[in-house]
Structures are given as structure tokens and as C-alpha cells.
Design a protein around this nucleic acid. Structure first.
Lengths: 138, 138
DNA sequence: TCCAAACCTATAGTCTCTGGAGATATCTAA
DNA sequence: TTAGATATCTCCAGAGACTATAGGTTTGGA
């Protein structure tokens, strides 16, 4: 039996975060000691590692909740699981695309500035003031 | 003189967001009509366009506040302005790097799954359960 | 047995908005 | 001029995923 601190050290998930996951329904309510402290077993450790890993991959709480629910039915086909992962991949790619546009625009803006002239003439400030100086839309 | 709704329509910034920017000190407290409604002029429109543009580029409120303060001193050199923009570019690039790692990992995971077998055998679920199946760290 | 460390609950704060309730102001048409 | 529709006002709560604090209780080791 592990205390919440033990679980925290083994998974690298902070104690308040573990309690938060319980509250959000990702972790089942833990057993309690006589003094009302949470006690965990191996399967809680595995569940928490699953959650942590999914979060690291950027999946949100509701997607993880859905994956866990699907995991309760091991004999069903995994089409929904696959869909969640693929949808997430799509959204990651969209974010990358947007950030790359920002990167280009910022590169262009700062490339005109040597940091050494007056603010009234600064290309950074002028670009922000006048969208017309931009390439493309954002 | 523009009402808050006029300003909203002209900039594409929602009315509550305009009030929020005022509260955050990005927009000066507007003049008021006799009936206490906000009235704006051209320079408020320009200021709001500046804020909107900076937000679209991903700058946060405190960075924008700083840029606006710097803009009040048009004769000073623009080194700080340049630094804010360059720092932001660095953080955008870091985000892109992280997302690309996620993209690779997700690609690898979903590429093993045809969505057509049992959940207990699903590579997506197995990958999430067992970090050992991953390439690299995250 | 005693004390420090870990734990408990409840609550508030982070950040950038967004939406709602309930009251007041403004504008348009009759 | 007046009614009614639309816009605005302030204040407050919620989103998402935690994180931190306060004040109190339990646990584990010397």
C-alpha cells in the first residue's frame, strides 16, 4: 500500500495533481487508512502512469476519461481509441502550422530591427501598429 | 466618437474583451457619455488594433503592456522592444520543437493501429500504458 | 512519548477571455 | 412623444489544468 506521497514520487505527478485527477474522475476514489489518508495499490500506479503519459502527449482530461472508459471494455474493437489519437494528431499538426506562421512573421519583423534606433522608427512597433506591413493573414 | 460596439465591429474584438483590456490596463479608461457608456476615438481604435495584432502573434498581456509603455517614449532606443520580440520568437520556436516531438510520437503510435482489433491489443492503449514502447523522452 | 513530516479538506489564484443576470441608456419608427 | 428594440452598464462565474495556501489531523521514527 502506497501513500499519496509514495505515488507522487514514483510517477513524478505532484500530490495536489493526484487529488485533482481523483476529483476529475480519472482516478477512482482511493481506499483510506484508519486516519482517512489515501492508500494506493499497483493498479492505481499503472492508471496514473497512463494518465501522465497521455497528458505528456497533450491529450486533455476529457479525452483521457474517454480512453479510460474504453479501456474498461477490452473486447470491443478499438476504432474509437484510434479516432481519439488521430484527432489529436490532427490538432497537434494544426498547432504546429499556426506556430510556424507566427515564427515566420516574427522572424521577418525582428530581422528589420537592430535594436539600436529610436522607438518611433522601430520596425517591430510599426509592424504591430500597422497590419499592412505583414505578410499573409493571421 | 465610437461606442464600444462600433469599436468591436471595426476591430473584430468582442465587447467584453475590450472591457477586459481596459481592466488590464492595456486600454486607457474611455471617456463616458452622459449615460455612462464608453466613447472612443481614433487613437483608441489604433491602440486596440495594436493589441489585437500583438495577441494574434502570441504575445501575452504583460509583454503588450510593456510594449505600450515603451511606445510612450518614442525617442529612446528600441533595444527593449527588440528583446521582447526576440524572446517571444525563441519561445515560439521552443513550442514548435515540443509539438514536433509529440507529432512524431503520435504518428508512431497511430501507425501501428488500424482501428479494427480488440482494445486489449490496441497499440495506442498499450503505448499509453507502457512508456517503454516510446521512442525518446517526453 | 514526542515531534517533524506528511497528510487532510476547502478555498483561491493562475491566464485570457467569454457568457450570463439584471439594470440602465440609446436609437428608431410610429 | 412614446413605445419598443437594441446596446450598454456592472458584477460575477466559468473554462482548463493545475498550483498554492491555511488551518487542522495522522503517521512514522528516535
Amino acid at each position: 500500500m502506497l501513500s499519496i506521497g509514495d505515488l507522487s514520487r514514483r510517477t513524478g505527478v505532484k500530490v495536489p495533481t493526484i487529488r485533482y485527477y481523483e476529483q476529475m474522475g480519472l482516478l477512482a476514489a482511493a481506499e483510506r487508512s484508519e486516519g482517512n489518508q489515501r492508500r494506493y495499490e499497483r493498479h492505481d500506479l499503472e492508471r496514473l502512469a497512463f494518465i501522465r503519459h497521455a497528458r505528456d502527449l497533450g491529450l486533455d482530461i476529457s479525452a483521457i476519461r474517454e480512453l479510460i472508459a474504453l479501456g474498461q471494455h477490452p473486447h470491443r474493437p478499438c476504432g474509437d481509441v484510434d479516432r481519439i489519437a488521430r484527432d489529436h494528431l490532427v490538432s497537434v499538426r494544426e498547432k504546429i502550422g499556426k506556430l510556424k506562421k507566427l515564427e515566420q512573421e516574427l522572424e521577418r519583423i525582428v530581422s528589420h530591427c537592430d535594436g539600436d534606433h529610436a522607438i518611433e522608427d522601430c520596425y517591430v512597433i510599426r509592424s504591430l501598429s500597422d497590419h499592412g506591413l505583414c505578410d499573409g493573414e493571421h
